[in-house]
Nucleic acid binder design. Sequence first.
RNA 1: GGGCAGUUAGCUCAGUUGGUCAGAGCGCAUGACUUACAUUCAUGAGGUCAUAGGUUCGAGUCCUAUACUGCCCACCA
Length: 747
Amino acid sequence: MDLGKNSSRSEFKIIKSFSIEIVNKTYEHLKIEQKIYRLWEKSGFFNPDKLPNSRKRKPFCIIMPPPNANAPLHIGHGVFVALEDLMIRYQRMKGKRALWLPGTDHAGFETQVVFEKEMEKQGKSVLEMNREEFYKAVWDYTQKNKKIVKNQLKLLGASCDWSREKFTLDKDIQKIVYETLKKLWQDGLLYRGKRIVNYCPKHKTAFSELEVKYKEEKGILYFVRYKIKEQKNKWITVATTRPETIPGDSAIAVNPKDKRYQKFVGKVVIEPITKREIPVIADKEVDINFGTGALKITPAHDALDFEIGQRHKLEIRETLNFDGYFNELAGPFAGLNVFEARKKSTQILQANGSLEKEKKEYIHQVSHCYKCNSIIEPMLMDQWFVAMTKPILGKNKSLRDLAVEAVENKKIRIIPSRFEKVFFHWLDNIKDWNISRQIRWGIPIPGYHCQHCQKFFIETEKIPKRCIYCQSKNIQKDTDVLDTWFSSGQWPFATLMSFKGPRSKDFKTFYPTEVMETGWDILFFWVARMIIFGIYCTGKIPFKVVYLHGLVRDKDRQKMSKSKGNVIDPLAVVETYGADALRMALIIGNTAGNDIVISEDKIRGYRNFANKIWNASRFVSMNLKDFDGQKPLLSPKDKKILNGLRKTEKKVTKYLDNYQFSLAGESLYHYFWHIFADQIIEEMKKRIKADEDKKQAQYILYIILGDCLKMLHPFMPFVTEAVWQKLPQYTPKKNQKNNLLIVSPWP
RNA sequence: GGGCAGUUAGCUCAGUUGGUCAGAGCGCAUGACUUACAUUCAUGAGGUCAUAGGUUCGAGUCCUAUACUGCCCACCA
């Protein structure tokens, strides 16, 4: 089938019905943008298969970072649209088979939180819904938002291939995610284990390390005496910020080299709240110089303590329940929450003479839930973990090593390069990844627990009837879901692999993709995981370049947030100033890795620029009516003028190839406005009026405007295409296909 | 505790291999309804490129130190 021919027929019709007149003195984006978008959509050129000579083109692919399908887009999304669409349009014009693959993310935990808030607002209770009802309700909610997001992306001018749109919960995507889970399981990299995890008592789920934010807080350091058994007036003093966990203590640990305490090692002390007898042990992890040098060990409620506890086979006392209240094991604290128990503990300790002193104004780091700011409780839980540093079965490399190698060997380049250091540092200290979430929205973990032999196993293809170890029928399905990043981490290959039919070649054609353009704030959450999974699952890197953009700030450099009331709604901007103005404002002054400052003034400035393009084009259009399109003999002076254009073209192209988008945009802006409009047009105006070398003047205007429209198109696609369509000199004869600026060749 | 970034005109920021790099937008001042554009045009004011040293024929641009600002990472109880 000749796709090009088909599309050219439909174009012709559209152009005839394209009714915007270039006689208007002002560029009216509202009347034009949506029509232009429809024109592009009907051309089919967003789909790389339908580009002219598609087969001969070299592939160029960007996978869109899927926006969360739980809310409309915010200004940060505008940044990625502006940058990615710029790259895609540029490469398309350079003759590449450009694919920008769109999609949305179910965003597990994030969406569940947003949805619950929304329900609360409507006075509905999510607790009344059972698991299925809840899932269905959130599903509908995301479907609704997906539509909104899609429409917004179109309003921003995103030239992505909607026929390849994906959602992280699509059946075919989930299937691939499960295959990865199975592979990890078979390679011995997925395990279920009881570990200390970061637990948010409010959201009632565990998190990975990344969802925890440490904040400096003032607290009290309590110095508590543990009496040595059967020795009068002898004790070890321990410094702790959490006296409420004393009933969970299993030992007191000291450093084996600590001369002060060597004599006590092996002795027994009395824990001062419930008066249990616990041993004094020696462990090298204890810091001699901190506090008193003696550490109380609470294996169930502290990560280091758990480790030490494991080493010394200490009793694990889980005194705190998952609802945030203490249980009977906590003795007098049973039924209290953490703060009540802390208060009570100081009273008891004071009363029985165990509280030596308090250091108030003690500043320490406290972990908080990144979402609700609740204090994270380290809790013991059975969770699924991905082993990041364990060698992959049959190889001498770990998942971590795969990512380190790819960046070290320059197979993947991170822009700006300083983030490579950050990347390595994170990987050097990486921990096993907890991928279980105790929430209802997300991809269920196909994990099973045998009630008979107490073992866990993964079964992705079918629902198992028996335990794979002991054949017992008494097995229970896991109720946890996967961390969202587990699925989005597979996005580049999962999307491309998921297609059937003629598109089953997509993976082969477009993978590895070219660029991953996203915010630096999700370098660990997402980019690192995509690199790891990409290489682990396919043997190839997922993308060659990582371009990290900054966060959008307001003109006072404040982060935008709804609570501060300084958010800019990108679609409101599009409505007022046009998508082109917003996009240009987001590109100019925006350099990799640095935050972006945007203000209404700036956007207005580029709206004016769009108008400038419109009017300069009007002028050229008016003065080219009798232009025959032939190249006349040019004077040296005229050649010099065109030479200036060539120089600008070279410069802009170089900047774009080097990912210096801001400089490219600025150069174009300056050339178009202050060289072309202010100087060249003014001079040619005089010549045309005086009929002095008029043909040459017309030719110069024709060439420069044409090339400028092309170069400006990836930055400001709507106004440039609108003008292009209105100038018959640029839109070739009916029998030629490529009369859209979107596919005209880059100068 | 470790690490990173920033400090350039009133404001917000560009300036990647050291030599038209002292810039842009907005703002400001003055003038202009010049038939492409008042969402415009012309002209102009302004910065010892944080500070102190150093390398160099030559440094916002490289090195060292200092100061302030912001950010990231970390199991110091």
